[in-house]
Simulated scan of single mutants.
Amino acid sequence: MKSLCDALEHFLGFVCALAVGSFTFLIILDVACRFVFHFPITWLNELSIFLFQLTSFTGATIALRKGLHFGLGLMVQDIWPKLSKTLQPIAIVVVAITSGLIVYLAIIMAKQAWHSTYTTLPFSQATIYVVTMISAVIMVLFSIEELLERFSTPSQRSA
Rank of each mutant, 00 (worst) to 15 (best):
residue 14 F to D: 05
residue 14 F to Y: 12
residue 16 C to K: 02
residue 17 A to L: 11
residue 19 A to Q: 02
residue 20 V to F: 14
residue 20 V to P: 02
residue 21 G to I: 07
residue 23 F to Q: 07
residue 23 F to C: 03
residue 24 T to I: 08
residue 25 F to Y: 06
residue 25 F to G: 01
residue 27 I to H: 04
residue 27 I to F: 00
residue 27 I to V: 07
residue 28 I to Q: 05
residue 30 D to S: 06
residue 30 D to C: 05
residue 31 V to W: 06
residue 31 V to S: 09
residue 31 V to T: 12
residue 31 V to F: 10
residue 32 A to M: 13
residue 32 A to F: 11
residue 32 A to E: 05
residue 33 C to T: 08
residue 33 C to G: 07
residue 35 F to C: 01
residue 36 V to M: 02
residue 36 V to E: 07
residue 36 V to L: 11
residue 36 V to S: 06
residue 40 P to N: 11
residue 41 I to M: 04
residue 41 I to V: 14
residue 42 T to Q: 01
residue 42 T to K: 06
residue 43 W to S: 11
residue 44 L to M: 04
residue 44 L to S: 03
residue 46 E to Y: 01
residue 47 L to H: 07
residue 47 L to E: 01
residue 47 L to S: 04
residue 48 S to A: 03
residue 48 S to H: 00
residue 48 S to E: 06
residue 48 S to G: 04
residue 48 S to D: 00
residue 48 S to N: 03
residue 50 F to Q: 08
residue 50 F to T: 04
residue 50 F to H: 05
residue 51 L to K: 00
residue 51 L to S: 01
residue 51 L to P: 00
residue 51 L to I: 02
residue 51 L to F: 05
residue 52 F to T: 09
residue 52 F to H: 02
residue 55 T to E: 12
residue 55 T to L: 12
residue 56 S to E: 15
residue 56 S to W: 10
residue 57 F to E: 01
residue 59 G to F: 03
residue 59 G to C: 11
residue 60 A to V: 14
residue 61 T to K: 08
residue 61 T to Y: 09
residue 61 T to H: 09
residue 62 I to N: 03
residue 63 A to S: 14
residue 64 L to P: 03
residue 65 R to Q: 00
residue 66 K to E: 05
residue 67 G to M: 06
residue 70 F to Q: 08
residue 71 G to K: 12
residue 71 G to R: 12
residue 72 L to C: 02
residue 73 G to L: 04
residue 74 L to K: 14
residue 75 M to E: 05
residue 75 M to Q: 12
residue 77 Q to T: 00
residue 77 Q to A: 05
residue 77 Q to I: 06
residue 77 Q to F: 00
residue 78 D to Q: 15
residue 78 D to E: 14
residue 78 D to Y: 13
residue 78 D to V: 11
residue 78 D to R: 10
residue 79 I to R: 15
residue 80 W to L: 13
residue 80 W to C: 08
residue 81 P to Y: 06
residue 81 P to N: 13
residue 82 K to P: 04
residue 83 L to E: 15
residue 84 S to R: 14
residue 84 S to W: 13
residue 85 K to H: 15
residue 85 K to N: 14
residue 86 T to I: 09
residue 86 T to E: 13
residue 87 L to N: 08
residue 87 L to H: 06
residue 87 L to D: 10
residue 88 Q to D: 08
residue 88 Q to I: 08
residue 90 I to W: 09
residue 90 I to T: 14
residue 92 I to N: 07
residue 92 I to D: 03
residue 93 V to Y: 04
residue 93 V to T: 06
residue 94 V to C: 13
residue 96 A to M: 13
residue 96 A to D: 05
residue 96 A to I: 08
residue 96 A to V: 07
residue 97 I to D: 06
residue 98 T to G: 13
residue 99 S to N: 02
residue 99 S to R: 05
residue 100 G to E: 09
residue 100 G to C: 10
residue 100 G to R: 12
residue 101 L to S: 15
residue 101 L to M: 14
residue 103 V to C: 14
residue 103 V to G: 05
residue 103 V to W: 12
residue 103 V to K: 06
residue 104 Y to Q: 10
residue 104 Y to V: 05
residue 104 Y to W: 14
residue 105 L to S: 13
residue 106 A to W: 03
residue 106 A to F: 01
residue 107 I to G: 08
residue 107 I to A: 13
residue 108 I to P: 02
residue 108 I to V: 15
residue 108 I to A: 12
residue 110 A to I: 05
residue 111 K to P: 07
residue 112 Q to H: 15
residue 113 A to F: 07
residue 113 A to Q: 10
residue 114 W to P: 01
residue 114 W to M: 12
residue 114 W to F: 15
